[in-house]
Simulated assay, not measured.
Amino acid sequence: MENHANLDSFIGKVINNFRKKQGLTIAEVSEQSNISRGMLSKIENGQVSPSLDSLLRISKTLGVPISAFFKEFDSEGESAQLVRADERLEVVRRGTKVGHTYHLLAYDTGPNKTFEPFLISLDNKSEIFPSFSHEGKVFMYLLEGEMAYRHGKSIYQMKPGDSLTYDASISHGPEDLIQVPIKFLNIIIYGNSDNT
């Protein structure tokens, strides 16, 4: 029974870390996963054994495979990961409500992410996009379309093949969607920025 309690505690910590890394509140995950705030809080604190259905709903909301909740419990994990095009997870992020579509291209193992690669699509030219700010550095590579992208007070005109690297803690976001659809690769790199 002690091992079972350890697993509940481990899963709770992993979920809590994934949620905080994405800047999501318990209320936001609760709404998207259709699990009560109280139950989510108990799961994160290791006070209950979550059902597989609950774990599946939480994994979809956080954009991680359900196996990520268990992977490092009793193994060292794998050194390589293949995610096929039809297996990419569409995930909820802060921009989802305003027209961004996010596909997570790799699932970093364990609760401490070092990076997150996304394929982001913008389809609605008339949509107004807010500013974003979060931890980490970002490498962006434009694959399709054309847009003006704002970082701080600067505006960058981007066409396919252009790349932009920036500090994500500074306000950023699309300024003008010049030619849609727009697709770009966005890699968020976490860690100590003092060593870069």
Rank of each mutant, 00 (worst) to 15 (best):
residue 165 T to A: 10
residue 150 R to H: 05
residue 74 D to G: 12
residue 31 E to P: 00
residue 57 R to K: 15
residue 47 Q to K: 14
residue 158 M to E: 11
residue 59 S to I: 06
residue 15 I to N: 05
residue 150 R to D: 00
residue 110 G to I: 01
residue 55 L to K: 06
residue 159 K to I: 09
residue 37 R to C: 08
residue 176 D to S: 08
residue 39 M to R: 05
residue 104 L to F: 01
residue 119 L to W: 10
residue 109 T to V: 15
residue 178 I to Q: 13
residue 101 T to P: 02
residue 133 S to C: 07
residue 78 E to Y: 12
residue 77 G to P: 03
residue 96 T to Q: 09
residue 174 P to D: 13
residue 44 E to Q: 12
residue 152 G to T: 05
residue 112 N to H: 08
residue 156 Y to K: 03
residue 68 A to Q: 14
residue 81 Q to P: 01
residue 108 D to L: 01
residue 127 E to T: 13
residue 58 I to E: 02
residue 157 Q to M: 07
residue 115 F to D: 05
residue 160 P to N: 02
residue 120 I to C: 05
residue 118 F to W: 11
residue 78 E to R: 13
residue 77 G to L: 04
residue 69 F to M: 11
residue 29 V to I: 10
residue 125 K to V: 12
residue 106 A to G: 09
residue 32 Q to T: 07
residue 94 R to V: 08
residue 13 K to T: 11
residue 133 S to V: 02
residue 91 V to K: 13
residue 113 K to Y: 04
residue 141 Y to Q: 11
residue 95 G to F: 13
residue 109 T to M: 15
residue 179 Q to P: 02
residue 103 H to F: 15
residue 123 D to S: 15
residue 42 K to E: 07
residue 169 S to R: 13
residue 70 F to L: 12
residue 73 F to Y: 14
residue 36 S to E: 00
residue 86 D to Q: 09
residue 6 N to M: 12
residue 68 A to C: 14
residue 17 N to V: 00
residue 19 R to P: 09
residue 24 L to R: 00
residue 47 Q to I: 06
residue 43 I to S: 02
residue 8 D to C: 13
residue 37 R to F: 00
residue 181 P to W: 11
residue 147 M to I: 12
residue 52 L to A: 06
residue 61 T to Y: 01
residue 134 H to L: 02
residue 71 K to N: 06
residue 20 K to A: 07
residue 123 D to C: 06
residue 64 V to G: 07
residue 191 G to I: 06
residue 37 R to D: 06
residue 105 L to R: 07
residue 82 L to W: 05
residue 75 S to W: 03
residue 112 N to M: 01
residue 173 G to R: 07
